[in-house]
């Protein structure tokens, strides 16, 4: 069996998939904007307790991130070795990210055991269950839709959120490194994503699965934020 080499998918299909994903993103962003925690952040009303709750709740999902990407990678067949290898690389870069969140939490005045022992909220439970389930399916190319949403957060929202948190709460840089770091490092998100998309056997059916995965992931991610209890 030959290894699938990145030959470039049909440009029109690639454009159509990206278009539908961009539409899914704006739907997701609309949900984010109306989540109570984000409303408070946008309105300059965030409290330190809100920010700590934000970090605690994020951490329980971020800790799983590299794990579901790894699981997805392990279910990519040999024909798509290039994509598998890219996903493994991704998981490796991200698998310590939750440490940053823990350090931010401590720098923001929290106690380490509080963030380590907290349970997932209902939204995080749903998001995690969804991710692992999808990652466990054979050749889970559609999880690129989930990555589009989660990495889009890094590229489009994280640094603005981080800057806004620091200004509102008068905290040092060290208290928002997770948000600021993602804003800085996810810059070429679009290019990287397009190259991954081109590694898949993209057709109409896969496009529909990728877009649906983005929609569901976005909804569950927003649910996770909606479930954060505010001070």
């Amino acid at each position: 069996m030959s290894v699938h080499v990145h030959t470039g998918a049909d440009p029109a299909r690639l454009q159509s998939t990206l278009r539908k994903l961009a539409i899914a993103w704006t739907g997701f962003e609309a949900r984010l904007e109306t989540a109570p925690l984000i409303r408070k952040l946008n309105r300059g009303q965030l409290t330190l307790a809100d920010y700590q709750a934000f970090l605690i709740n994020l951490r329980q999902q971020v800790v799983e991130g590299a794990c579901w990407i790894s699981r997805a990678a392990s279910n990519i067949s040999e024909d798509y070795f290039e994509l598998r290898s890219t996903l493994i690389g991704h998981a490796a870069t991200e698998h310590r990210d939750y440490h940053l969140l823990e350090q931010d939490f401590v720098a923001a005045g929290g106690a380490i055991e509080d963030i380590r022992t907290a349970r997932k909220n209902v939204g995080s439970e749903a998001l995690s269950a969804w991710m692992y389930h999808q990652a466990g399916r054979p050749d889970p190319f559609h999880l690129l839709g989930a990555m589009w949403i989660i990495e889009g957060l890094g590229a489009q929202k994280a640094s603005d959120w981080g800057g806004s948190v620091l200004r509102q709460l008068d905290l040092p840089q060290e208290a928002a490194r997770f948000l600021l770091y993602h804003g800085e490092n996810d810059g070429d998100h679009m290019e990287e994503f397009q190259s991954m998309l081109a590694m898949t056997p993209l057709d109409e059916a896969l496009e529909a699965r990728i877009v649906r995965c983005a929609e569901v992931t976005g909804r569950l991610y927003a649910l996770q934020l909606e479930e954060i209890e505010l001070a």
């Binding site: 993103w25 704006t26 489009q156």
Partner: peptide, 9 residues
């Protein structure tokens, strides 16, 4: 981004 989303739709 939201404007572009509407246009893309």
């Amino acid at each position: 981004r939201a404007w572009i989303g509407v246009y893309l739709e």
